[in-house]
Amino acid sequence: MNIIVPLRQVPDLVEDLEIDASGKDLDREWLKYKINEFDDHALEEALLLKEDVGGTVTAMALDGDDVDKLLFTAAAKGADKLIKVTGDFPQPLSSHAIARALASAIQGMDYQLILIGVQAVDELDGQVGVLLAHYLGVPHVSVVTGVQVTNGKAVVHKEYAGGVMGEFEVTLPAVLGIQAARQTPRYAPVSRVRMAMRKSTIEEVSASDTAAGGTPEIRKLFKPEKGAGAQMLDGSPEEVAEKIVSILKEKGIV
């Protein structure tokens, strides 16, 4: 079974996010990026499926900063094939544009499953996975936490609120928006990433569809208002703990 996993980097939310001079985008100059955590789960699930039923895992990403490292890291974790999708993409890159570019690169490839992170923190205009499925004309299920493949079909679990899940049988090829892999995504030590850089090659495929459209027009970015929120408790850990205990006593909790 051939599985394609489109990977993407998103701003690392541990860092402070600043808005640029135009007011319409993040200030990206010093921004630190990391792999979209849901894509990491999608890659893990793909590698586990390959261990179950055999086949190949292809990691794919749109050309951009640090994309080689992203792909080599996927190789270090076990991806068999690395593809960089090149093209003159509309900026800022939207979910619609990413999905169109990926679809035009994937069209004609031999695959049974595309596993992709169910969402990302920067998807202003919808989810890449669902858009991709529709541009490719294949079915999709989002918010998937369990995948089994038997007899050319996937049986998947989709999560709803309250822990209820729907079980679906999906004819392949299909796109699955992965919420969580069966296990914590594996870690690739730096030495293995370096080895992958020496041993693996990145194939370039040019996207034939680099159209924009389908997105809202950004007016401005702004930080949520401060001050309306919490009353802040200051001091040493000792003092803070003291204050918390007295609040809890006052409210009759302890």
Binding site: P216, I218, R219, F222, P224
Partner: peptide
């Protein structure tokens, strides 16, 4: 839209 895990809001026009 509440983006970036709720850290930045984006006002848009459709």
């Amino acid at each position: 839209s509440q983006m970036y895990g709720g850290k930045v809001n984006v006002e848009s026009e459709i």
